[in-house]
């Protein structure tokens, strides 16, 4: 099944975001070998060169480590992964909070909603 994309953002940027989320969400544990560009491009139904670009961006962030001809691996730098994870979580919560504020939801209302949802 092809992945779906927003029409206004570059596909490579959206691929980077999605794969970063997959890695930080635990789909690919630290130190594991990453699937090939060809496989991922096929799975996402995107151009292989676009997928390549997306993975290089994750290499630049240090999340993926290139190892010559053996391919790419998820970094084993746990503190880096934790930092990236915290960034992603904060960004996500901030987005939810901004949306809540725009609707006039008070902090108290928001907190009690979260607590009630958890029960």
């Amino acid at each position: 099944m092809a992945w779906s994309f927003d029409a206004h953002l570059p596909v490579s940027v959206q691929l980077t975001e999605r794969i970063r989320m997959d890695i930080l969400g635990g789909k690919y544990p630290p130190g594991t070998q990453f699937p090939t560009v060809r496989f991922l491009a096929y799975e996402a139904s995107v151009n292989p060169n676009t997928m390549q670009k997306a993975l290089v961006a994750l290499e630049d962030e240090g999340i993926l480590i290139p190892r010559g001809t053996t391919g790419r691996f998820v970094t084993e730098d746990l503190s880096l992964l934790a930092k990236k994870q915290a960034e992603l979580k904060n960004a996500y919560m901030r987005r939810a909070l901004t949306g809540a504020k725009a609707l006039g939801i008070s902090t108290h209302e928001f907190i009690s909603f979260i607590e009630s949802e958890e029960q």
Partner: peptide
């Protein structure tokens, strides 16, 4: 480049 167009114009190739 089809992907760079989106970055440059903020719209898809179709648009």
């Amino acid at each position: 480049n089809a992907d760079e167009v989106r970055a440059q114009h903020g719209k898809s190739l179709n648009e």
